[in-house]
Design a protein around this nucleic acid. Structure first.
Lengths: 131, 131
DNA sequence: ATACTATATGATTGTATAATCATATAGAGG
DNA sequence: CCTCTATATGATTATACAATCATATAGTAT
């Protein structure tokens, strides 16, 4: 819960993209993988870094490990969380939110992610093809 | 003014110590050097990094360059600034504030810093010797 | 002009860390 | 039991960056 460690843990583009999604949702590794288009190992390491800094927590459900904001972090760093929420309004982050939204509105769940990558990606990108 | 660059620029212990002092003061390089007990080159590079991220600005006065918070940054990142102010209440940062206070209350100015290092340091540490 | 001061910056070294591939682990489901 | 899946982690490589020393620059003071 050290300030320097918190700020360092947040000082990476991919970890900020992850934080953007986890600020109001819980997602497992393979969902983050699909939505952010990063590989499994990479996502896992970024999540570990955020968890070690006390920013997020993990919870196992069946074979998946879901990550979400750590409540203690949230309450002790409210201003920072609100700041990030505001800054995440910019385009580089809202695209990811759109993809998360498309995923939530699709018929897919994390069960399908690896078996149906192509079809899922069609769904995730659908929102961008509307013009 | 990119979010990632701002967070990265803040993700260093010495730069946070500098920010702590610059949040409500303007200081030149040699003053920061003396108060934080870091060498000139090191302080200069950290200041450059913070300046490049748009967090602080510099202003020349005679032979000194004074650094202070960038007003645009301050207004566009108010929540972050307030968050930092709160977190700077912890001991690792308040010691530096004590040293800054001792310096302000001393007879010294940045003119004296290099010529009178020993005597100045006595002043800066005076506050800790009171027990 | 000369010496000195404040700051910046080139060059170097060591360390941290991001990305990636391959593999380990652990659990789920046939 | 065997296979498949989700995740973590060892090993490696490439890159970023902090610290430091030495030097450059630019301006002040004599």
């Amino acid at each position: 819960m050290d300030l320097v460690e918190i700020i360092k843990a947040l000082g990476d583009e991919n970890r900020l993209r992850i934080m953007n999604l986890l600020l109001d949702d819980k997602l497992c590794v393979c969902e983050l993988e699909a939505i952010l288009d990063l590989n499994q190992s990479n996502v896992s390491r970024h999540l570990t870094r955020l968890k070690n800094a006390g920013i997020i927590k993990s919870q196992k459900k069946a074979q998946w490990i879901f990550y979400g904001l750590n409540d203690k972090f949230k309450s002790e760093n409210e201003l920072l969380v609100n700041y990030l929420k505001n800054r995440f309004a910019s385009e580089e982050f809202t695209n990811d939110v759109s993809r998360l939204k498309a995923y939530r509105e699709s018929k897919f769940t994390c069960v399908d992610i690896r078996s149906n990558t192509q079809e899922l990606n069609k769904e995730l990108f659908r929102i961008f093809e509307e013009d």
